[in-house]
Amino acid sequence: MQFATSPDAPRPAGPYSHAVRVGGFVYTAGFGPQHPDTGEVPEGVVAQTRQVLENLRVALRAVGAELDQVVKTTCHLRHPEADFAGFNEVYREFFDEPYPVRTTVGSELPGILVEIDAVAVSGDTAETA
């Protein structure tokens, strides 16, 4: 197992690693929209989703993976009915077809609008169709 905490992602809010590579897979923690240098949270679901996905990207890179190796995401939206369209708009900027499988749920997210975690195949086992 290879555990990693990236200096380029926001510091963990608790006792956990950003990502772990085990076997042929990479698992990430859930990432919020905090800027890694300032800790600031941008306004609105579009800006927050963009920051979350940038945070996720650097966590994956800490264990040698990229967003195009993601096979599954779990996405939490504080206001799913109001924010789903804006969230999807940005999500499409980071993922290409065929999109990873995804679960999107409404969640209690104090102070933020979006949180995402991912499962990816590791670089040495990734195959493209």
Rank of each mutant, 00 (worst) to 15 (best):
A4H: 06
T5R: 12
T5K: 05
T5V: 12
T5A: 05
S6P: 02
D8F: 06
D8G: 06
A9P: 05
R11Y: 10
P12F: 01
S17R: 11
S17D: 09
H18V: 00
H18C: 00
H18M: 00
A19T: 03
R21D: 05
R21M: 12
V22K: 07
V22G: 07
G23L: 01
G24V: 06
G24M: 09
F25N: 11
F25H: 13
V26G: 01
V26H: 06
V26E: 02
Y27N: 09
Y27T: 09
T28N: 03
A29D: 12
A29T: 13
G30Q: 10
F31P: 01
P33H: 03
H35R: 14
H35C: 08
P36D: 04
P36W: 08
T38M: 12
T38H: 08
E40G: 14
E40K: 12
V41N: 07
V41H: 07
V41R: 09
P42L: 03
P42G: 10
E43Q: 11
V45H: 02
V46A: 03
A47P: 05
A47E: 05
A47Q: 08
Q48V: 07
Q48A: 02
Q48R: 05
T49E: 03
R50H: 14
V52D: 00
V52M: 05
L53D: 03
E54W: 11
E54T: 07
R57I: 01
V58W: 02
A59Y: 01
L60V: 04
V63N: 02
D68Q: 08
Q69D: 02
Q69R: 08
Q69A: 04
V71L: 09
V71Q: 04
K72V: 12
T73E: 10
T74Q: 11
T74D: 09
C75S: 13
H76D: 09
H76G: 09
L77G: 03
R78W: 10
H79K: 13
H79Y: 14
E81I: 06
E81R: 15
A82P: 09
D83F: 10
D83Q: 06
F84S: 11
F84R: 15
F84N: 06
F84M: 12
F84P: 03
A85Y: 07
G86C: 14
G86V: 13
F87R: 07
N88K: 14
E89G: 07
E89K: 14
E89L: 15
R92L: 15
R92E: 08
E93F: 06
F94P: 01
F94N: 02
D96M: 10
E97A: 15
E97P: 03
E97Q: 11
Y99R: 00
V101E: 04
V101S: 11
T104L: 14
V105H: 06
E108F: 15
E108D: 15
L109G: 05
L109T: 04
G111M: 01
I112P: 01
I112Y: 04
L113A: 06
L113V: 05
V114D: 00
E115W: 10
I116C: 07
I116T: 07
I116A: 09
D117A: 15
V121F: 00
S122L: 04
D124T: 08
D124Y: 10
D124R: 11
A126V: 12
A126P: 03
T128C: 11
A129C: 04
A129F: 04
A129E: 06
